[in-house]
């Protein structure tokens, strides 16, 4: 009897076991190890001495930390708002406003290209556009219109370029999810609304946007965390410069670990990044009433 009950009780865990093991080994353990590393002075010598909160004290005393946090917040906030808004715009356009399904799909595929393109190649394009010499595309244009000196775009507006490039390549993920959700709204709903004389604007406001509540939540939360952790494009485009004008917290952590080979200090900065994004995620969960999403199963054992 007991064996049968045990079997019954345990099978959810059997279903979960592969996932749990994978997660434990390649997420939980590395995460704990990162925490441990953050409390050591591990560096290129690969000898780790426990120094407690020493790294965290160092972070708070770091003369770069305030400007970097400022840059990070600006970068995350504007990238987030623009990415979500732009992917909504794209989804509504290609899925609802463009009536020809095939054309809509083609538009979407083209928008997917920047995100599939490896960052390494993508950045080459942006560097060509905003090349600081007269040979750069943007400089050719402004100099055609009479400017005498070329502009050092990445120096003068590096963060803006980074945000725009990020939005263009980052919008497609949200676009697909939003389009999918709009796609799953039954035609009848639109028809009924049109019979009532609803215009496109009110259909978007009253039917489409409410249907997108969960996808918007999902994209907002994942993008927030993703943006906090992202440094890849910035590293390739400006290396965080000039000075620290485009250095985000995550990039700073990367630089400490991989350029200065101070793994302990880098890990401590990563931990701060993770804590900030966790707090924000929890806040967003509350904002979107996440618990509603978890529905109880209907077959009781």
């Amino acid at each position: 009897m007991n064996l049968a009950r045990l079997k019954k009780k345990s099978y959810p865990y059997l279903f979960l076991a592969p996932f749990a093991i994978l997660t434990l080994m390649f997420f939980v353990i590395p995460a704990l190890a990162t925490l441990w590393m953050a409390a050591t002075n591990l560096d290129r010598k690969m000898k780790a001495d426990f120094i407690g909160f020493g790294n965290f004290q160092r972070i708070f005393a770091d003369i770069n930390i305030l400007p970097i946090i400022k840059v990070t917040l600006i970068y995350v906030f504007f990238s987030l708002v623009l990415t979500v808004a732009f992917s909504l715009l794209l989804a509504i356009c290609t899925q609802y406003l463009v009536k020809n399904k095939k054309l809509g799909a083609l538009y979407r595929v083209i928008w997917l290209i920047p995100s599939t393109m490896p960052g390494l190649v993508y950045v080459v394009f942006w560097k060509y556009i905003f090349n600081p010499t007269p040979g750069g595309f943007a400089n050719k244009i402004v100099m055609y219109f009479g400017l005498e000196q070329p502009i050092s775009w990445f120096n003068d507006a590096g963060l803006l370029i980074i945000i725009i490039a990020g939005v263009i390549s980052g919008a497609s993920g949200g676009m697909i999810l939003f389009s999918a959700s709009i796609n799953s709204i039954p035609e009848d709903v639109y028809k009924a609304a049109r019979v009532d004389g609803a215009k496109d604007r009110s259909i978007i406001r009253d039917i489409i946007l409410p249907a997108l509540k969960w996808p918007i939540m999902y994209v907002t939360v994942t993008s927030t965390i993703g943006l906090f952790a992202s440094y890849n494009f910035i590293l390739l485009a400006t290396r965080g410069g000039p000075v620290v004008d485009t250095t985000t917290l995550a990039l700073y952590g990367y630089q400490q670990a991989f350029n200065r080979l101070e793994y302990g200090y880098g890990a401590a900065i990563s931990v701060i990044v993770v804590i900030i994004s966790l707090l924000l995620t929890l806040l967003l969960f509350r904002l979107f009433d996440f618990n509603k999403l978890i529905r109880p199963p209907r077959i009781e054992d």
Binding site: V221, I225, A229, Y254, A257, Y263, V271
Partner: peptide, 14 residues
């Protein structure tokens, strides 16, 4: 949810 969007890069070294 948190894992799904966790900065995997922070775990790279470990």
């Amino acid at each position: 949810f948190i894992m799904g969007s966790f900065p995997g890069i922070t775990l790279l070294i470990t």
